[in-house]
């Protein structure tokens, strides 16, 4: 079961929900945690993984042998990302624009293009208690988060519960995080910004045919518009986390709140049961 915790708006509590859910479930299930927010990986602050080892993530970028290059310009013309410019007597590659698709070397008739691996980040693997912990880390200055997420997601196993902490927004890194998920758990706050960005997230998940549920964080601030929207749209609100200074203080110190408030472990387990029912509504009746 792959559950991706996502949000349109940043800072609504994705990591808080993902981390606490993973910890609560890990007492009775095999859980793996993937921090897909590779531009700002913060889950490790809360889960404090041990025995981490890392693997680099690379993309293949072109290298031009100028001694055989005929400066025909076919590669520049073919590249959809403007990553190669051909001039009358030299060729420039812009590695930060290159997606590593390999089309340039295919179209080159002079056999002047070879490829070299360029490191754009890494995936670290460690453990937190019984949780298998993975985090992606995009090297500062590198633009493309998607290859790191894609690489890391190859570690997802079918038999375990995988909790994915997604980046904010609705652009390609979010799509890659949601891809193949059984459920999108969308975290929002009860404010106009929260509502606006929740609508976008629901739209994306629905386009991808992924069932959704909502967690309202900082419940008590703002207004009722998120709840009204969820009711109108038939989006289940699965949990409300109160706007509580103690929870905020624990967060600020990197402490998951289920470790301090034991009753929340049960609530996160209930949340998981409800997700299971939504993902597989017939499972229960089959068992019976």
């Amino acid at each position: 079961m792959q559950i991706t915790v996502s949000a349109g708006k940043g800072g609504t509590g994705k990591t808080t929900v993902a981390v606490n859910l993973a910890l609560a479930l890990s007492e009775s299930h095999s859980v793996e945690f993937l921090d897909c927010d590779v531009e700002e990986p913060d889950a490790g602050i809360f889960l404090k993984p041990e025995n981490e080892n890392s693997e680099p993530v690379t993309i293949e970028i072109p290298e031009i042998s100028e001694d055989v290059c005929t400066y025909c310009g076919d590669c520049s013309e073919a590249c959809e990302f403007n990553a190669i410019a051909t001039f009358s007597e030299n060729v420039l590659v812009y590695p930060e624009l290159c997606h590593g698709c390999g089309l340039c070397s295919r179209v080159c008739t002079a056999d002047a293009i070879s490829e070299r691996s360029k490191i754009i980040g890494e995936v670290r693997r460690g453990s937190t208690g019984s949780i298998d912990f993975y985090e992606g880390d995009l090297t500062i200055g590198e633009p493309m988060a998607t290859p790191i997420i894609r690489d890391m997601k190859k570690k997802v196993t079918e038999e375990n519960i995988s909790i994915l902490d997604s980046p904010p927004g609705t652009a390609c890194p979010v799509i890659e995080s949601l891809h193949g998920s059984d459920f999108a758990l969308l975290v929002t706050e009860p404010t106009p910004f929260g509502l606006h960005d929740l609508r976008l997230s629901v739209k994306v998940a629905r386009e991808m045919n992924i069932p959704v549920g909502v967690v309202i964080n900082r419940y008590g601030i703002g207004d009722k518009s998120v709840e009204d929207y969820c009711e109108d749209e038939g989006v289940p609100v699965l949990m409300k986390i109160p706007n509580d200074r103690k929870i905020a203080e624990l967060y600020s110190n990197g402490v998951p709140f289920v470790n301090k408030f034991d009753n929340w472990k049960g609530r996160f387990n209930q949340l998981f049961e409800e997700i299971t029912r939504i993902v597989n509504p017939r499972a229960k009746s089959v068992e019976v």
């Binding site: 531009e39 700002e40 200055g141 988060a145 980046p167 990197g254």
Partner: peptide, 26 residues
């Protein structure tokens, strides 16, 4: 938010960046 392509694109040609943070570990 983040450090990826939209942020890099937003930094180009800018004179001055105000970075808003909060006093949390993250």
């Amino acid at each position: 938010p983040g450090t990826g392509c939209p942020v890099i694109a937003s930094l180009a040609d800018v004179d001055f960046a105000l970075v808003v943070t909060e006093p949390t570990e993250s």
